Amino acid sequence: MMIESMTPTILMAGFAFGAIAATLMVTLRMWQGWLDLKRAELDRRAPPQGEERVEIAELRARVKQLEAIAACVDL
């Protein structure tokens, strides 16, 4: 008799556990997709190392030219 009265409770607990597990699986999949999206965005933004060095060298040359102009020196 006691088992018969516990059956609906066990079924509801099993259903709740399954629903929570499914929700967690979907949430984890969404989180992984979001992380993949952010990684892709960072990969698109980051220039390769060689290009970055060229940009820094160009900026240094521009600063040098501006300093020369400010000091009234012709390069």
Rank of each mutant, 00 (worst) to 15 (best):
A71L: 11
K64V: 03
A40T: 07
A70R: 12
I20F: 10
M12F: 00
I10D: 12
A68E: 13
L66V: 03
V26L: 13
D74I: 08
L37G: 03
L11G: 02
V63E: 10
S5V: 02
M2Q: 13
V73E: 12
T9K: 13
M6D: 13
G50L: 08
M30S: 08
K64N: 10
D43P: 03
P48A: 05
A13Q: 15
Q49C: 01
L11N: 10
R60H: 12
A71C: 06
E51K: 10
I56F: 14
A22H: 01
D43G: 03
K64W: 07
I20R: 15
G33R: 07
M1I: 06
R29A: 09
A68G: 06
M25K: 12
E58R: 15
L35R: 15
L11K: 11
L37P: 00
Q65R: 07
F17R: 04
D43Y: 02
E67M: 10
A16W: 03
E51Y: 10
R62N: 07
L28H: 14
R44W: 08
K38H: 04
L66E: 08
S5D: 06
A22V: 08
C72A: 13
E67F: 08
L42P: 06
A21F: 05
T23G: 09
A16K: 11
G18K: 03
L59Q: 14
E55K: 15
W31A: 09
I3C: 12
D43W: 02
V26G: 05
C72V: 08
S5P: 00
M25N: 10
R44M: 13
Q49Y: 10
M30D: 03
A13I: 05
A19I: 01
Q32P: 00
A68W: 04
I10W: 05
I3N: 15
R62F: 04
I20Q: 14
E4A: 08
R62P: 04
L37H: 07
Q32V: 05
L75D: 14
E58P: 11
L66T: 03
L11D: 11
T23Y: 06
F17V: 04
M1H: 11
P47S: 03
D74T: 12
Q65D: 11
A70V: 02
I69K: 10
L59I: 08
L66M: 11
G18R: 01
T7I: 07
G14V: 00
E52F: 07
L28T: 14
L75E: 14
A70Y: 04
I20A: 15
R62D: 04
A71N: 11
A57T: 04
P48V: 01
A71I: 06
S5E: 09
L37Y: 07
K64T: 06
R29N: 09
M2W: 07
R53P: 01
Q32K: 13
A61N: 05
L11P: 00
F15D: 15
L28M: 13
W31C: 06
L42H: 09
T27H: 09
G33K: 08
L28P: 01
A68V: 01
W34A: 00
L24D: 13
T9Y: 07
L42V: 06
